[in-house]
């Protein structure tokens, strides 16, 4: 493939991945905040007869999900984007 086309596609793809991942996190976080702002009673529902509320489960999940998403991004970059990058630098 023409190097110039490959370069343009690489930049596009790189930005696409960066912004998609960022958007995912931002949507998740701000939905959480909006629920707190407008429908807080939703977060107070108790799960499975225990004392874990929807809010706590959701909050802890966001932390874990953030870590997983950074891991996925790193894996994609290490195993895929870096290879294209090396090709472009040749």
């Amino acid at each position: 493939m023409n190097k110039r086309i490959l370069y343009d596609r690489f930049i596009f793809l790189n930005k696409l991945i960066s912004f998609t991942f960022s958007l995912l996190i931002l949507c998740l976080y701000f939905s959480f905040i909006l629920i707190i702002g407008f429908k807080p009673q939703l977060l107070g529902i108790l799960l499975y007869d225990g004392y874990i509320t929807v809010g706590i489960a959701l909050g802890l999940s966001i932390i874990i999900f953030s870590i997983l998403l950074t891991l996925i991004y790193t894996l994609i970059s290490n195993n895929f984007l870096d290879k294209v990058r090396d090709k472009l630098k040749e």
Binding site: F21, L26, Y29, G59, T70
Partner: peptide, 13 residues
């Protein structure tokens, strides 16, 4: 959570 979610963004952008 607010303090944490800045971090993935730093990585991505």
């Amino acid at each position: 959570i607010g303090f944490l979610v800045g971090w993935p963004i730093i990585l991505f952008l």
